Simulated scan of single mutants.
Amino acid sequence: MQPGEPSARFVDIELEPGDLRLRTLVPADAPLLVEATSAEPGRSLWGPHPLGPHSLRDAQAALAEWDPAAPGQFSLGVLRDGRLLGAVGLIPERPGSIEVAYWLRPEERGKGIASRAVRAATLWARDGLAVPRIWLEIEPGNEPSLRLAERVGYRFEQRVPRHCRAWEHQDADRDTWHDCLIWTFGTGPA
């Protein structure tokens, strides 16, 4: 089995002894996603739509797209006592390069949970999947994410003009785009 194969992408990491876990999410976790997004006013990790809470159908569709048994993106859930607090998404761009994205429930933000989860997912991707280049895309005004990137050990690489989509419209040509700051963890090529 190769490090990047889907079967190698199942993980269960203890972030805090007996309390906080990071584990691969599967389509059967859809009810956890519905409950986790119930108070979400914005977008969550699992795709551009819907804005706000997910229905069971939305959650099933999102997790099917983020299926770790298939090639492509997959999601690691941040769980405490069986409750989904958020997730870290791993989005392969090309061989040797993964984008990391993350989301937490609104009431769990600002507690250091995202930092622990992103750091654990980053180290696991680097060591467990043997990915040399791991990176974040951050909107320039997102101060909490910029602080997280520094805390976790990422370094600023570049600003990419009009790179990130707002997802206000289905049609990309009608949507708005904004600059993104790229922060990298690995030492691989840009």
Rank of each mutant, 00 (worst) to 15 (best):
R105P: 07
G72M: 08
T122N: 03
R105D: 06
P53I: 03
P92F: 11
L79Y: 04
P27I: 06
A172V: 11
D127Y: 10
P3C: 06
G96V: 04
L84A: 06
P140L: 12
H169P: 06
S97A: 14
L85K: 02
L84V: 05
V34M: 05
A64P: 00
L15H: 03
Q73M: 14
R162Y: 12
E93A: 12
A87W: 05
V88C: 00
P53C: 02
R174V: 11
P31I: 09
L33C: 04
L123I: 00
D81G: 10
W103V: 13
D19G: 11
E157S: 14
C164S: 15
D29F: 04
S38T: 13
Q73K: 15
A62D: 11
L56C: 06
R174D: 13
L22C: 02
R159P: 07
I138E: 08
L148C: 00
R83Y: 05
H49K: 12
W177Q: 07
G52N: 00
D175F: 13
L123A: 04
E14H: 03
P95N: 08
G82T: 05
Q60K: 05
A69T: 10
E5S: 13
P106I: 04
F10C: 12
R83Q: 14
D179I: 12
P6W: 00
A130W: 07
Q158G: 11
T37S: 15
L20W: 00
I138W: 09
L25I: 04
S44G: 13
P48N: 07
W135I: 10
T37G: 06
H49W: 15
R23F: 13
S145W: 06
K111C: 07
L45P: 01
W177A: 09
G72L: 03
P161L: 10
T122R: 02
E157P: 04
T176F: 09
G141S: 12
D173Q: 14
G188A: 01
A39V: 13
W167Q: 07
F10N: 08
P161Y: 07
L85F: 12
L84D: 02
G186D: 01
Q158M: 13
P132N: 05
Y154C: 01
S38Y: 05
D58K: 03
D29H: 09
L181C: 13
G82Y: 03
A70T: 14
A39I: 08
S7K: 14
E99S: 04
E99F: 02
P48H: 09
L51C: 08
Q2S: 12
V131H: 00
L22M: 00
K111E: 11
L181I: 11
H178D: 12
